[in-house]
């Protein structure tokens, strides 16, 4: 130990930070007990929690149709899918906990409106075609977002994303197959599909977040390799992927400006209504209040189960301790 107290105190931090930066530069992963800058930890907790909340709230729009699925086959598929969303939420809460966050606290912050979830889940599911379109477009957009996150610099987050991406593929395909089935049906069913596409297309494009020049977190997150592509890059990729899928399905995407641009080698598309995005993300979408109220109700109504399980475990533990003491 040295006797001077200022210089040596500052030095180890710099050294730690350098080590952290080198690890990121070498494209290696940061793991839970590594030293990391406070901003990196905070950014990750915010992003992972928001992602976890989205999975949990995302159970609701589709859960809405489980009891009214048109066949046992569709019902079993939908149940499995909604169960997956719950699982995805839990993988992500688990990743957030490796950063020192507490799952219970994150839930409380969601319920108090202090943490956000994806704006997409604040839109209603009006017909069964919405279930198919969510699988195709919403999960399709989620896959676009999530595949690069499998290489995110934070190990537990990247590993959670690998699991999630494997499962999302089922989600997207079941949705597209559902829509193909409806498109082979009656005129009314085809109209339902087109109507659902019209309602979900623009909100799906908003899932990638604000345009790059307005995204306040993008630059730092890319430097830290938490994010690998910008919002606009991913949005363009999604549009390019989806147009041929829409053609194969026989639906029209509701954008008159959507057109192949041979010079750019991409599809051009129309202006997104960012005012709507801001309205929905700040709490004034069609279903925000309903979604949070349902989550709150489920949390409160499940409290007795959590308490009973804890009481049972406590009783068992005490009984075992008594038996051990007696023996």
């Amino acid at each position: 130990m040295t006797t001077t107290n200022t210089a040596p105190a500052a030095e180890p931090v710099t050294e730690l930070e350098e080590h952290f930066n080198r690890t990121i530069q070498r494209d290696q992963r940061i793991e839970p007990r590594d030293w990391m800058p406070e901003g990196y930890r905070k950014t990750l907790i915010r992003q992972i929690a928001q992602h976890a909340h989205s999975e949990i709230i995302g159970m609701q729009p589709e859960g809405n149709w489980i009891t009214r699925a048109p066949s046992l086959r569709r019902k079993a598929i939908l149940l499995a899918k909604v169960q997956d969303e719950a699982g995805h939420g839990l993988y992500l809460y688990s990743a957030a906990e490796t950063l020192g966050a507490d799952r219970g606290e994150l839930t409380e912050r969601l319920l108090a409106g202090k943490q956000k979830y994806s704006s997409i889940f604040n839109y209603p599911t009006l017909t069964f075609a919405d279930v198919g379109v969510i699988g195709w477009l919403v999960d399709g957009a989620a896959i676009c977002n999530q595949v690069p996150l499998c290489r995110s610099s934070y190990g537990p987050y990247a590993r959670a994303m690998i699991r999630i991406c494997k499962e999302e593929s089922f989600h997207q395909r079941q949705g597209y197959e559902l829509l193909m089935t409806m498109m082979r049906g009656t005129e009314e069913q085809r109209r339902m599909v087109q109507d659902a596409v019209n309602r979900w297309w623009w909100p799906s494009l908003m899932m990638f977040g604000p345009p790059d020049d307005q995204s306040k977190h993008t630059a730092q997150s890319m430097a830290w390799k938490i994010k690998r592509h910008t919002n606009d890059e991913l949005r363009q990729k999604f549009v390019d992927m989806t147009v041929p899928q829409a053609e194969a399905l026989g639906v029209t995407l509701p954008d008159p400006e959507l057109k192949w641009n041979p010079e750019r080698g991409h599809y051009d598309f129309g202006q997104i209504d960012w005012d709507e995005f801001q309205r929905v993300i700040s709490g004034n979408g069609p279903c925000n209040a309903q979604r949070i109220a349902a989550r709150k109700r489920a949390h409160e109504e499940g409290a007795w189960v959590r308490e009973a399980a804890a009481a049972y475990a406590r009783k068992q533990r005490e009984r075992q301790q008594r038996q051990e003491a007696a023996a």
Partner: peptide
């Protein structure tokens, strides 16, 4: 593979089955 919360060991095993071995 990850973590979870449970009241006791048995519940942890069941939750682990539901969460980490669905496929």
């Amino acid at each position: 593979v990850g973590s979870l919360h449970a009241a006791d060991d048995e519940m942890a095993l069941r939750h682990a089955r539901d969460l980490y071995t669905r496929r």
